[in-house]
Design a protein around this nucleic acid. Structure first.
Ligand SMILES: [Mn+2]
Ligand SMILES: [Mn+2]
Ligand SMILES: [Mn+2]
Ligand SMILES: [Mn+2]
Lengths: 216, 216
DNA sequence: ATTTAAATTTAGACTTGTCTAAAATTTTTA
DNA sequence: TAAAAATTTTAGACAAGTCTAAATTTAAAT
């Protein structure tokens, strides 16, 4: 239905739209590791197909149709990531690039059957919600550990940084999805957070605390 | 590593090489539903990359390197088909087009894990052999039913025609992989073959008998 | 309110893969 | 073996997607 490039642009705009209302040409270029001029060309094409609202120099947003396409790609990406981790025993830091290819397999019937095969999971390995076949999902309220007060506790439920390096660090420290932690102390000097975990105490930098999400 | 187009050409040449020693431009064009001029262009590129032996007007064959690439694509195609049928409950006539896309997912680690997950199957849903990770497979000796003499028996083990229409017909008649049949009679008028199956007698046309394979 | 800087778009070019139409080569047939 | 037919290749064009460099527009700073 849509080309690989179109799908990647729509997904990038979707992702950037989560934090910004209108998305800029340069933001998209950075997200896709491409050049602003290439982005402009594609935005014209997507606007012609009524997938984005675009007026030159004014930024871009997804139309209803564009949002639907983007959500379906996100759905496929996250279901394949779940498959790779739960069925093929990959680690959570290994699956992104593979899912990046697999999300473009066109058949919706295939992805629906895969979803059924896996028992209708609602979160991918990184804690991100998996849209159902109608594009609906429950966006859970998460906040970074860096915003928690001393003595507050919660369950690790997501990450902001999906890089392999960060995920590997978390895994090593046992900071994985589902684990309960409490904030024991915040060191004012550099905002290092001292966490109390099940059996040990652990200090994490503000940077890490800012990228690790807790369920409200 | 290789583009989608390159992979499709290599696979087509591989397939055609099974019956012919040297493959012609027109054969490839027919196989890929493209034009002879497009094929010529690609053959030059593949020859530059040392994936095919090509001298203009002389036909083409795969080099060792090209054969290895082609076999890996065939391996992926057949493992994904097996997955779709055995794990996601698709019918054998529904999986080809999906596998046609999935065979281009690049990760070999992924396909090796998938193979392990499924218990190292050796045949795809259509009876075709699945090459292992080194490209080795046992090419079984099969012959069409149309070559069997009266009273000969054997196990249905493969098909020559992979079209959905043919596969659906076979399924309907219970002529599926693994079933034992004997040739009861051959009607000389039009070479219709009368089969004795477990519980019933069935007449199949010469055309069908020619596309349905029995293990020797 | 100008000037400067940053962001964005346009112009023009390039690559991959495809096509049609014409030319060249090989194969077939007479 | 020479003409006819079929196959294959070349020439030239096009669409998708990308890039660099230059021009335009918007935003920021004097
Ligand atoms: Mn991912
Ligand atoms: Mn994810
Ligand atoms: Mn197939
Ligand atoms: Mn098959």
């Amino acid at each position: 239905m849509y080309t690989l490039a179109e799908e990647n642009y729509l997904k990038a705009i979707y992702k950037l739209s989560l934090t910004d209302d209108s998305v800029s040409t340069n933001q998209i270029a950075a997200e896709l590791c491409t050049k602003a001029s290439s982005v402009t060309d594609m935005l014209r094409k997507l606007a012609d197909k009524a997938l984005v609202n675009y007026a030159r120099y004014q930024g871009v947003s997804l139309t209803k149709a564009g949002n639907k396409v983007a959500l379906n790609i996100v759905r496929k990406h996250r279901l394949w990531e779940y498959f790779l981790v739960e069925k093929l025993n990959f680690k959570w830091d290994e699956v992104h690039d593979m899912a990046e290819e697999m999300e473009h397999i066109s058949s919706n019937e295939l992805i629906n059957r895969l979803e059924e095969f896996m028992g209708y999971p609602t979160r991918d390995p990184h804690g991100d919600p998996i849209p159902d076949s109608h594009g609906n999902f429950r966006a859970h309220d998460l906040k970074p550990i860096s915003t928690m007060p001393v003595n507050a506790g919660g369950i690790i439920s997501g990450v902001r940084d999906h890089s392999a390096a960060f995920l590997q660090y978390l895994e090593k420290q046992n900071l994985v999805i589902g684990r309960y932690i409490t904030v024991k102390e915040i060191i004012t000097y550099d905002n290092t957070v001292v966490l109390q975990m099940e059996n040990k105490e652990l200090q994490i930098s503000h940077e890490v605390a800012n990228n690790l999400l807790i369920a409200l």
